[in-house]
Simulated scan of single mutants.
Amino acid sequence: MSSKAQSVIQFIVERFENLNRQRRFSLKPLIIGISGIQGCGKTTLVSNVVRKLDQDHNLVAVSFSADDFVHTYEKQVQIKLNNSQNRLLEKRGLPGTHDVAFCRDTFAALCKAQYEYATRIGETEKEASPVLVPKYDKSCYNGKGDRVPEDQWQRILPPIDCILFDGWFLGFKHLPDEVLSRIYNDALRRPNGEEKPLFLSHALSHLLTINNNLKEYETSLYPFIDIFIHIDTEDINVVYKWRLEQEHRMIAKGMTGMTDIEVKEFVNRYMPAYELYLPKLRENSFFEQNGHSFEDISGRHLRLLIDENRDRISEVIL
């Protein structure tokens, strides 16, 4: 098992034991938010962590991703039409392309199921109904993607000790409009010859739309998260290398993959969000502000730094 996975498991187990002593945590699943840029190995990491929590620590863990809650293909088409000039919303992935209300209701249903299991509500124990978690197939409609039929969704029954929820932009928080506007205009004034951020390839109004969309994730989903894990790297541009490697492996296996130029264009769509929101996540705890005291939020955010080979370099707990 990788040192990265070992760090994550140790962090989860210790927080589960500590927080489970408090009633407000003991009657619900411990919800773990996991953030990391595309290609950093989140899917493999989460799969290994879920398995080891069960095998080595007797903890029932389930997992799903923000990708599972991307809007249906039909809804994606409508979003594109409603934002016809905004290239950031032409395809899935960025804030505004997920069914946030559905995701919120799924978290609530899972918490309710575990609460009823933990308190054994009712005179006789009744068999619980499964909570259905959608699955998404990115290959549908020539790569545009769509939600799979309901009979293929994940069916989750209590007990549920831990929920691992991952997403590439999880933890990103909106900027005040005036701050985003100032960042944009300052970048425009950079001298010729100086490298300029990719967010300048988009209209400020389009960036403000994405920025406003982020608020729904913050208010509807972030309050469910009990502990947070951020997988970071020293150079965000390594995402191009990782994505190229992924496509080359798919092509080598005889599968359809993007060309190198298409990979660059694909990653470019996400870079504005990294440029605008990653600095704040790197500098602050996910739980900062929101009315919490320092004692309440301290020690609940793990930042793992990895190298271009996805190996752990260092870690810090905030």
Rank of each mutant, 00 (worst) to 15 (best):
K280M: 04
D99F: 07
T72V: 03
L180T: 01
I163Q: 06
L53H: 13
D146Q: 05
P29N: 10
I297M: 13
D235C: 04
N268W: 12
I9M: 09
N86F: 06
L200P: 05
I34A: 05
T119H: 15
G291C: 10
F294Y: 12
N211Y: 07
S220W: 03
L27H: 09
E125Y: 13
E90F: 14
N86P: 04
E262W: 04
E218C: 12
A66P: 00
L110E: 03
N82I: 00
L278C: 01
A273K: 01
S314E: 15
I156T: 00
G33Q: 02
F287P: 00
T124K: 15
T119A: 08
P149C: 09
V100P: 01
E295W: 06
E116Q: 14
F102A: 06
S201C: 10
I231R: 01
I227A: 02
I236V: 10
F266G: 04
P95G: 06
N48W: 09
S129A: 15
L276R: 06
E262G: 02
T106P: 09
Y222I: 04
A252V: 04
H301T: 09
E127I: 10
L27M: 05
E234H: 06
I183K: 14
L281R: 01
D151E: 12
Q38K: 11
L204T: 05
A128I: 03
E283C: 06
F69E: 04
T119E: 12
Q154D: 07
V13C: 12
L164C: 08
F224D: 02
E265S: 12
P176W: 10
I210G: 00
Q246F: 01
V263W: 00
C111P: 02
R269G: 03
G193W: 10
G171F: 01
I236T: 12
R249S: 08
P95N: 06
A113C: 10
I79C: 08
S205K: 15
T119Y: 07
P149K: 10
L45I: 09
I210R: 00
R104M: 11
L304V: 10
R249F: 05
A108S: 15
S220L: 13
N142L: 05
T119L: 13
Y222D: 05
N142V: 01
N213F: 14
D161L: 03
A273Y: 05
L59P: 10
G254S: 09
D232A: 12
N20L: 07
A101S: 13
C162V: 15
N82R: 15
V316G: 13
I183G: 00
T209R: 13
Q76R: 14
C162T: 12
F107R: 00
D311K: 15
N142T: 07
N192Q: 15
R189Q: 15
V133Q: 04
N212A: 15
V13F: 09
L200M: 11
Q246H: 06
Y274E: 03
L221Y: 07
Q38L: 08
E315M: 11
D311S: 13
V70I: 14
R120I: 04
R243T: 02
F165W: 14
L19P: 01
R243K: 10
Y136P: 03
E90L: 02
P272R: 01
E275D: 07
L276A: 03
Q85A: 11
